[in-house]
Design a binder for these strands. Structure first.
Lengths: 140, 140
DNA sequence: TCATATTACTTGTATAGTCAAGTATATATC
DNA sequence: GATATATACTTGACTATACAAGTAATATGA
């Protein structure tokens, strides 16, 4: 049995651990607020965007998803009124996604749930370790 | 616009970054060796298991997947001869998965590809940062 | 200024995985 | 030892994506 290189070990661990974290956050958000983690991430990005609106393609880039994934993710969110579709008068190809007030309210509530769950998942991390972990993640 | 808590920020970053890493590794492995990252992970676990065999449920636990996901993942791997099915005479419920020599050879080659790709994804990490990152990941 | 390329988005099709229910076997309890 | 519960696995139905191809609008450049 050989030893894995440090890079391989990081990739492996990242893959396994992210599945655990994602599943737990997803199921908490689903149970309490009826949205998935991906939907939460969309709301999160919109909430901090200027004018609370973004192009679909920018959401896709920021969330590391494809444009088609975003189209499909947004469809039910539009239907339930969490976001609305707006046009860009300068460029008719673009369809802007805007956070509605219902979406914003849901987002605020969901944030409480998400952060509580995330905190419990990270209970083994003190402040310094958590800061360090985040810095290292963002270095990727 | 509010600031996200450190725990929320870690969850967000982990979710985005793991998608990027997973997609790249998956596509490299697929292009060069015709297997996905999940399949690679199965081979990896088997390669270091005693007798190179594991119960399906243990693979599921180690990879943070469900038993049914493992059943579906293994089916094509059996068909292409990367793993074989064995029975456990002590417990007829169990079907052991064993790495074949073809599976082992593919695994060795795929490891080269994976580690090269992982190394390039982690080019911003020096030895010390990489060690630290792995420790922090495993603390989850 | 028109032809070509690029961009933003959508849609058809496919895959990886989940969850719930089902089957077979094993373990525990009375 | 019979019955109830738990475990290992599979299967049907569904969801969340991806990729490739298609459409429409915009930008580029001879």
């Amino acid at each position: 049995m050989q030893t894995q290189s440090i890079h391989g070990a990081i990739a492996t661990s990242l893959w396994v651990k992210s599945a655990i974290v994602t599943r737990q956050l997803d199921s908490s958000l689903g149970a309490v607020h009826g949205i998935g983690l991906s939907e939460y991430m969309v709301l999160f990005r919109l909430s901090r965007a200027p004018n609370k609106s973004l192009r679909r393609i920018d959401i896709a880039d920021e969330l590391a998803r494809t444009a088609s994934g975003i189209t499909r993710l947004l469809a039910p969110m539009e239907k339930t009124g969490l976001v609305s579709k707006e046009t860009n008068e300068r460029d008719a190809r673009v369809s802007l996604v805007k956070l509605t007030s219902a979406g914003e309210e849901l987002f605020q509530n969901a944030t409480v749930t998400l952060e509580a769950r995330a905190e419990s998942l990270l209970k083994n991390f003190d402040q310094k370790k958590a800061d360090n972990f985040l810095k290292l993640l963002n270095r990727l």
